[in-house]
């Protein structure tokens, strides 16, 4: 079946925007800040070219390129999430190691949950067992990665950690693409071939949305903060400090 014009536009918009993101990262000298995310972006741009060429060769070639790339993509996404964990905790020397501990704990927890999900989600014997196994794997890995990313966002909110602009955009984009792909994979696993159309639409839509977010955060510059103090009462602060000194001298 030939793709519609809108599908082709969606398909093209992803790699085009990702090229913009990759160039913006180099142009703004952020390559050293997010090297894994840049590799992830570059991989997707290169994959678009390879997939296009593979689709012209044969369906079989395209099939292996697509699923082989999906597996590499799952690993790269996890590495990007690890990079985000490192970034979020890096400015805070006292709790830097907490980031690593959190990442490992969240990963362990989500591995157990994903295995459970993959086990109970297994259906009856299928006429296309390889595709079904791959879709089931994709769904479980996406849920696993969403969980790990959620733990990162939650930890930052609880501790009051403020994200830097680009890592925040990357995290939001990764979250959006993972959610869209998880929904697509879950519906495809449930509906079988009847869900193909949904999958064909949802996957590139979530990717285009995510790359849009990345492009926005990579290109736009943070609004400058107004470094003037808006009237925090100095007498109030002095009063608090005096009372605290009194308390500490008593204890």
């Amino acid at each position: 079946m030939r793709p519609t014009l809108l599908q082709e536009l969606l398909w093209i918009s992803g790699p085009v925007l990702q090229s913009v993101v990759a160039i913006a990262i180099i142009h703004r000298r952020l390559l050293k800040v997010v090297p894994i995310f840049w590799s992830y972006t570059f991989f997707h741009v290169a994959l678009a070219v390879v997939s296009y060429a593979a689709a012209r060769v044969s369906y079989r070639t395209y099939f292996y390129v697509y699923w082989g790339a999906e597996i590499v993509d799952m690993v790269l996404t996890l590495l990007v999430i690890q990079e985000l964990f490192r970034h979020a905790f890096a400015p805070y020397g006292a709790i830097r190691s907490l980031g690593q501990v959190l990442f490992r704990s969240a990963a362990l927890m989500m591995i157990v949950f994903s295995i459970l999900l993959a086990t109970i989600g297994k259906g009856k014997v299928s006429p296309r067992p390889l595709v079904d196994s791959l879709i089931s794997l994709e769904r479980s890995v996406h849920v696993f990665e969403i969980g790990v990313l959620f733990v990162l966002f939650l930890a930052c909110r609880i501790l009051g950690i403020v994200w830097q602009r680009l890592p925040f955009g990357i995290a939001v984009g990764i979250g959006l693409t993972l959610s869209g792909e998880a929904i697509a994979a879950a519906l495809l696993a449930f509906l079988g071939t009847a869900g193909n159309q949904l999958y064909i639409w949802l996957e590139p839509m979530s990717c285009a949305l995510a790359t849009g977010v990345w492009a926005y955060y990579a290109i736009s510059i943070d609004r400058e903060a107004q470094f003037s103090s808006p009237g925090l009462s100095s007498t109030l602060l002095a009063e608090w400090n005096q009372a605290l000194e009194h308390l500490l001298s008593r204890s």
Binding site: L117, I120, G121, G123, R139, H142, V143, I146, F150, F153, V172, G175, L176, L178, S179, G180, A182, I183, A185, A186, L187, A189, F190
Partner: peptide, 20 residues
């Protein structure tokens, strides 16, 4: 079980999008 698993994944993903 299949319906519940699908619903669980879809709802989790939608909740995560709202959270984002």
């Amino acid at each position: 079980v299949k319906i519940m698993t699908t619903l669980l994944v879809v709802l989790l993903a939608l909740a995560f999008i709202l959270f984002l």
